[in-house]
Amino acid sequence: MIVAALIIWTIVAALAVMVFRKQGRPGLVAAGEMGFQQGRALAIRLPLAILAASFLMQVLPVDALVPYIGPQSGVSGILIASVMGGLLPGGPMTSFPIALVILQGGAGLPQIVALITGWSVFALHRVLAYEAPIMGWRFAALRLVASLLLPLASGLLAQGMLALLP
């Protein structure tokens, strides 16, 4: 967490130096103003969006489905896992531990790959809290439809790779 924050702010500082060298103070002021304008538009929306997503996190059940995504569950297990992944709440600090628990609880590896892909590309909670407020609903819908087949594809590719391994 702290390492990530350090990396991010180092990049911000490096970009700021580059802008300063190219355009001086006016460039920095203009960049800050653009960021501030965008931030102001989010001031009401974001806390509400985060609150809505947090409420949904409390009521969605995911662990009841583990028996359906075992190593022998094949394509149907991959599909169920993809949907589960999309409903999985939270960021990587919660979802990877959940994925680990489910894997050790008897799920198959391709199914878990599909679950993580589903969580990565659908993440309803992230669409609601971050994507829709910043990019708009239409962009979010386009991205979701374009991503519809990705969890299935990743699960099948992982299954194919497992078959190649000794």
């Binding site: 967490m1 924050a5 991010i8 702010w9 990049i11 911000v12 970009l15 700021a16 580059m18 802008v19 190219k22 355009q23 460039g27 203009a30 960049a31 800050g32 103003e33 653009m34 960021g35 501030f36 965008q38 931030g39 989010l42 974001l46 806390p47 985060i50 609150l51 997503a53 947090s54 409420f55 809290a129």
Partner: peptide
Amino acid sequence: AGWLLMIVLPQLAAGLLMGGLISRL
């Protein structure tokens, strides 16, 4: 939600600044 906001605000500030700076570059 409160916890998420606390985590997220510094990241958001960094992202907004990066967006603004990149658009200048």
